[in-house]
Design a protein around this nucleic acid. Structure first.
Lengths: 391, 391
DNA sequence: ACCGTCCCTGAATCATTGG
DNA sequence: TCCAATGATTCAGGGACGG
């Protein structure tokens, strides 16, 4: 597990156990009948050929490969097949055949803004991803997005009933007051995703043609796998799928027929560890989730986040008595004392005039905080204040 | 010209001259294998059946009809075929066959926000429109949209040249100054269109199932026809295409097999009601009135933002004692009393068990808040708590 | 296993009401 | 007359259930 393998994807797939894979991201050559090439920053030229004798020739390769994919997939597994307009309809016919019409789940549209060209007609700015599950009980993590700006959320919290004619209306009790319904989670994720196209200057770019943004792959992986699950990419190219899997702590196997691609993907995974380790220094593997919450909190108090200091999460934009004000947010796994100590340690020798800890958990009864001598000021997070209201 | 004809579309198309039509909007049943019915405001029930013996049965009808469409089309004419995920791939195979792979121009994605349901998986929120021309010299009016906010317009005005290795760079003259190119017109219209779905309460609604927004049809018609051109809709239903054609001063022929549909379409052409979408006019950002800060704060306390209620800024995701918890953040220009009053007013008749105001400003000395009777709970924002530390 | 049929879901946004 | 607040209505829906 967690490797990039050089070889024909069918051969390599044959070596995998049946019912062992959670997600397959299938991104074959698009049947453009062209040779794709691109020069990387180090001037190395990467290319692959997407020329075929005929569409049938092309499709038969796809079909064989998909059949093998189906075999290695767990019964709860899914395939995401990425293609573009050129052959998407023929490929979907194959998908229907191999995986079954019933297991078609969604046509995902990936839209992006892009450079215009002089083509007569509309500017091409989407690609299609077909989502098929192996069976009925596929793994799916529901994600929710914000309500539209025009939605009256206040209203939709109400319960409803049916009138005699079968129309649905909002329910009121005997006093004419509205009846409130159950908690709302937000809007289920749509099948149209707007994710920026990989910018030609993006650092992420490694110079491989048709490289996909990591964001797109992360989205797909989060949707259909959990931590520790296995993701396979039979046409992995520059290894974006593997990078995304690694970031999300999924296992991965990438396959590509080109020695260059395998080399490149491996390099990318190496380097990622390097850039990643800075983040790891800061805290735990929960970095990604925790940081979003914390960044919101730092935002609300007007603080600038600091990434590489385990004792300090940020500094207030406004100094206090001429000195910066360090802020630390209590971590889920820390006692308040721990938090204070870390902040104190990090600010030793720095004569800050004000140091702030944001408390995020209630103290338990045998807290000895009152015995604790510190000049750190403690404020309770708004979330904690609300939790206390619930008591 | 300019008529709605009752009958089978193939029969009616046979009566039309060859090379006489500029645009065909082809909106067949989607192969949902369901009966679609809807009741209009006057209680009249409109329905059509979309059940077929098999996909081949369905496709053979489509193919016959498309073949006839091709015949009546001028050499500069185009077909827009509207379908959804259910059979889009099979339909495109037929389109390739009848009109030719070379004449495929675009897959247009119509995306919209819509009310959700309890489906496992992604929320379905797009439909597909295939744009094929009859030949190479199809009529096409290029439309342009604004550059994206992140585009460096200054830079794209510069001319470019190629380096020896084939990379494209900006051109400079002998003095090293940039060379400005010719004026740019903007970004060509993309193939992904976000147009609001016909609203349940829209006046434009006539009670016919699957009714399309006039806006969508206007977009298509403007793209491929000029004033006085002829537009044909072989499955015209409630006649949206004809309404759009009339509005844009194009000629039209609508065909439908249902007497009811023909009647309805004619009525509609008599008194044309079109809702122009406020959302499109103003843009969804104009509805978002909350500041980044407020959104961050709502985020940190686990609340869903509400955009359209001056008394409530959000609801906590977790209910309290079975009821939602409204939250209001004190506004810069409000006294705390104002804020509380607004929240109270907005939650009148709703039996919330907990209502929260987030105080963001200190009370001044002559605050009369202590005289104020309310069951709203007040918490101080983290920002305020920090400001108070500074005193 | 495969149909209809019924019943439920739940957010979008224009129309209407209110000031 | 205009702007802001509120609500009505929808289902190119989806799933459960019974024959």
């Amino acid at each position: 597990m967690n490797k990039i393998v050089k070889g024909n994807c069918i051969d390599i797939l044959l070596e995998l156990d049946s019912d062992s894979v959670d997600l397959i991201y299938f991104d074959p050559p698009f049947y453009t009948q062209k040779k794709h090439s691109l020069r990387a920053k180090n001037e190395k030229k990467y290319e692959f050929s997407d020329s075929w004798d005929s569409i049938d020739d092309y499709l038969s390769v796809i079909e064989k490969c998909l059949t093998e994919c189906k075999r290695v997939l767990k019964s709860t597994g899914s395939v995401f097949l990425h293609c573009d307009k050129a052959a998407s309809h023929y490929i979907r016919v194959v998908l229907d055949k191999v995986l079954g019409v019933k297991n078609f789940q969604s046509e995902i549209i990936w839209t992006y803004k892009r450079w215009s060209n002089s083509k007569k007609g509309l500017l091409n700015s989407h690609q299609n991803i077909y989502f098929y599950s192996k069976g009925k009980d596929f793994k799916f993590n529901q994600f929710y997005t914000d309500y539209s700006a025009t939605t009256n959320v206040d209203q939709i919290l109400q319960d409803r009933k049916r009138t005699s004619t079968g129309k649905s209306t909002y329910k009121t009790d005997e006093n004419g007051e509205v009846v409130l319904g159950k908690a709302k989670k937000g809007v289920p994720l749509s099948d149209t995703w707007e994710i920026p196209y990989l910018n030609p200057k993006a650092k992420e770019r490694v110079g491989y043609p048709t490289q996909k943004p990591v964001l797109l792959l992360k989205e797909i992986i989060k949707l259909c796998t959990d931590k520790g699950d296995l993701v396979v990419d039979p046409f992995c190219g520059s290894g974006t799928t593997c990078v995304a899997s690694k970031l999300l702590e999924r296992n991965y196997i990438g396959i590509d027929i080109s020695e260059d691609a395998v080399q490149l993907a491996n390099d990318r995974l190496e380097k990622m560890i390097v850039t990643d380790s800075n983040l790891l220094k800061k805290g735990s593997s929960s970095y990604i989730e925790k940081s979003e919450e914390d960044i919101s909190l730092l935002n609300t108090i007007g603080a600038i986040p600091v990434q590489r200091n385990s004792g300090i999460d940020g500094f207030l934009k406004d100094h206090f008595e001429g000195k910066p004000v360090p802020v630390k947010i209590q971590n889920r796994n820390e006692t308040l004392e721990d938090t204070i100590e870390k902040l104190e340690k990090a600010s030793r020798n720095k004569k800050y005039n004000l140091k702030i800890v944001v408390q995020t958990k209630s103290e338990n009864e045998n807290s000895r905080l009152f015995e604790f001598k510190t000049d750190v000021k403690i404020i309770k997070s708004n979330k904690l204040l609300i939790d206390e209201l619930r008591r």
